[in-house]
């Protein structure tokens, strides 16, 4: 594994209109790593993803993917550079079927999964491949949102609360999927409120508070740091 991070964020500041929401966020993700952002509601986790992706346009600092500057790129170029974003609302296109949604995003590089491989990983999507996007359950939408990024060959996938509002058995299914992706060497940046879920998949944690990174530690230290976390997260 090379020592240079795949995704490097340095001193990232971002604004929603006049309000300054990120205050110098630093973040490193190495290739093949799964990193989870923890923090209270409003700590800036989703904002960090949106700022990396370029959906939030007013930002300063450094964002590099394999040393290539992302900050100056127009929005559509960020995805083409190899970052896949799965937003909290999943963003499935209701007027398209499952298979149409799946093949919609443009391929950004070689090495993405083929449609067959995706259907092997998500057999339920194969069953529902001709259903309209609107008719999917929350779990199916989530899997489709992940699946269609996998096909593009994105180098890193940004996942915003993939388990939110899903039944435990579906959460487990998504956990299995993420483990399978890790095995394939996928790099994942995860925002998650569900501790038990995050513990299972994450190699490293970042702790956010008020738009800053306040701590970072490897996954196995999670249990030992529970008291500290309870204090910051107030859970």
């Amino acid at each position: 594994m090379s020592s240079a991070p795949l995704l490097e964020v340095r001193g990232l500041n971002a604004w929603y209109g006049e309000s300054h929401v990120l205050h110098g966020v630093d973040l490193d993700i190495r290739e093949g790593e799964t990193v989870t952002l923890l923090g209270r509601n409003g700590a800036g986790k989703t904002t960090t993803l949106r700022a990396i992706m370029g959906i939030l346009r007013r930002r300063e600092g450094i964002i590099r993917l394999r040393g290539k500057d992302l900050l100056s790129l127009p929005l559509h170029k960020v995805a083409q550079a190899g970052i896949g974003y799965v937003p909290e609302e999943r963003g499935i296109f209701a007027s398209l079927s499952v298979s149409e949604n799946l093949v919609l995003p443009p391929t950004v590089s070689d090495g993405g999964m083929s449609v067959e491989e995706i259907y092997t990983l998500f057999p339920n999507l194969h069953e529902r491949r001709s259903s309209q996007g609107t008719k999917l359950s929350g779990g199916e939408q989530q899997m489709l949102a992940i699946a269609r990024i996998l096909r593009t060959g994105a180098k890193i996938i940004l996942l915003d609360e993939p388990t939110e509002g899903l039944a435990p058995v579906i959460v487990q299914r998504i956990g299995d999927v993420l483990m399978a992706l890790k095995k394939r060497g996928m790099t994942i940046l995860l925002v998650e409120q569900n501790f038990r879920f995050a513990k299972k998949v994450a190699d490293r944690f970042y702790l956010m508070e008020d738009g800053r990174m306040v701590n970072s530690f490897p996954g196995h230290e999670l249990d030992a740091r529970m008291d500290e976390l309870h204090e910051v997260l107030g859970v």
Binding site: A79, G91, P105, P106
Partner: peptide, 9 residues
């Protein structure tokens, strides 16, 4: 917006 962030111009 979503179409753009998937990489379409």
């Amino acid at each position: 917006r979503r179409a753009v962030s998937l990489g379409y111009r």
